[in-house]
Structure formats: C-alpha cells, structure tokens
Design a binder for these strands. Structure first.
Lengths: 141, 141
DNA sequence: CTAAAACCTGACATGGATGTCAGGGGCAAG
DNA sequence: CTTGCCCCTGACATCCATGTCAGGTTTTAG
C-alpha cells in the first residue's frame, strides 16, 4: 500500500510517517518512481510506534529498541533488554503517578460536589461570593 | 519563603515557578522591593500543579480547574466538574494505553530472552547473523 | 492523452514547558 | 558602604513531533 493508505489505516499523518522513516523507525520499499510502498506488517508496526510514543519514549529510544524487534541477533539482546527494563520502570512509575493524580482529581470532584450540595441546602444565600471557606484540602498526595 | 526556596523544596526550577505565575496557576505576594514571597501552602500547590502537568493537562486546562480549588463558588462548580470529569476520562484512557504498552514491552522482553536462550543452547553457532527467523510477533495490541 | 489525485523533497512554522543570558535591583553580613 | 547572593524582567534558544507550504513528479481514472 502507499503512504496515504497507511496513514488512513493507522490514523497517523503522512507527515509523521515520513518522519518515522527519517528517524529510522520505519522502512519502506520504493516504487520505480520513488513512492513509498508498505506491507500489512507496517500497520502494526506504526501502531506499536505510536504506542511507544504515547508511553513517553523519544524517537531515539524507540530506535534503540526496535532493532531488537527487527533482527534478533546476539549483539543487541543484552543492551536492548536492559534498555527495555529501564523503560519499563520509567513507564511503571509514570503509570503510578497518573493513578495518584486521578485519585487526586477524584478527591477534587468529591469536594466540589459536596460544596455544591451544601450550598444548595442553604437556599437563598447571598449570591456571588460563596461561603468564604478556605479552599478544600484535596491537594495532598 | 522566597522563590529559590520554593524551587528547592518542590524540585521545580525558578524559571518554571515564574512561568506558572504568568499562566495564572500560582500567585505570590511581593516584598517592597518586588520579590515574590510564598507561604507553606504553595509547596503543596506547586506539587499538585506538577502532577497535573504530568497527567498531560495543559496549563490552560489547569488554570480552568484551579479556580474551583481556590474559590469554591456556585458559578464554577458545574463547569469545573464537567471539565474534571472529562480530564479524568482522558487520564483513564491514557493510563490504560500505558498499561497495554507495558504489557507489549513485557512480551517483547520475554521474546528477547527466549531467543537469547535458544541461541545459547545451540552453541558454537555461526556468529553475527542470528537464525534468520522473522521478527518476533510481539506487536499485537 | 489529460486531468486529478496522490506522492516526493525541502524548508520553515508551531506550541509548550523550560533553559539561559543580559542588565539591573534587593537585602543581609561584615 | 561594600561584597555576595538571591531576585527581577525581558528576550531569545531549545527540543520534538507535527503542521504547512511550495514547486515538482508519479500514478491512476476517464
């Protein structure tokens, strides 16, 4: 398939696909006229690349990882494994942090709801300035 | 405390703290000479801001959320709640994606280990070209 | 054959958080 | 007062994935 179709099927812009190739993350065969051609396999590969990007890996890191996927050969196992383990850790930490943030957000929402309801209970209150209470303490880790 | 101390205690650069203020995420009182002064409360606030950044919220989004934390008043609850719910979803999706990516990484590592061992078993093999097997299929979602 | 659609390369633009530098004050200790 | 350290503003730099535009070629449909 040509680049446009790959782009459509992966929801990644044509621009980005060319960029991936520039960064050595993706390869293509070329037609006589110089146009890029891809096989089905590239669809998954692009999705995988996107996933790694979403995980916060830089294209340089990705390009260090992919050779191991491409051409498993003795040389790159150890280095790649270490690299992957390292990124796995980073990723886990990041996930934990996001989970904590989500919890904080939940706390914030709960507090907001509670405040809204207490305000609703005290009907006919003075408008516009709330109750003057200090900010809800939802910021702790 | 002055900005340098806040920076040290939150592990956020002085530059960034000023930037937060510029974006309306943080306020400070000023000394006669114009220097920023902060209270203890700001330490937690900065940490919270960092957390939201880490969760992928933009400073604009954060600044839409924080007023609710600061001055809970009728007007901003509904909007802020909706906003928070929305960001919570984004966050959850993001987390799921990262978890999937981590799983994919685990698969990759397992495959790499397996290959290394199978190569170790077949001792004295020709060096440098692996076994010519096609790339491990670890890319599925 | 021709026109439209898709592709090519190369270059410059963007956004967002942050780094960094310049030139000038504030403030405490000696 | 002076020295040293921290602070101020403003501006420009950087990184990185993408967007976008220009000018030209290839492919495909009619």
């Amino acid at each position: 398939m040509r680049i446009g179709e790959l782009a459509a099927r992966t929801d990644v812009s044509v621009r980005s696909l060319r960029y991936y190739e520039e960064q050595g993350l993706l390869t293509s065969s070329r037609s006589a006229g110089g146009q890029r051609h891809y096989t089905e396999a590239e669809v998954e590969r692009v999705r995988f690349i996107q996933r790694l990007y979403a995980a916060g890996l830089s294209s340089r890191t990705i390009s260090e990882l992919l050779p191991c996927v491409d051409t498993p050969s003795e040389g790159n196992y150890d280095a790649a494994l270490e690299r992957m383990a390292q990124e796995r850790n980073r990723l886990s930490e990041h996930i934990d942090e996001l989970v904590r943030t989500r919890a904080a957000l939940d706390g914030l929402m709960a507090t907001a709801r509670a405040h809204r309801e207490s305000e609703a209970r005290a009907q006919g209150v003075r408008h516009g300035s709330g109750d003057g209470a200090s900010a809800p303490r939802v910021l702790e880790s």
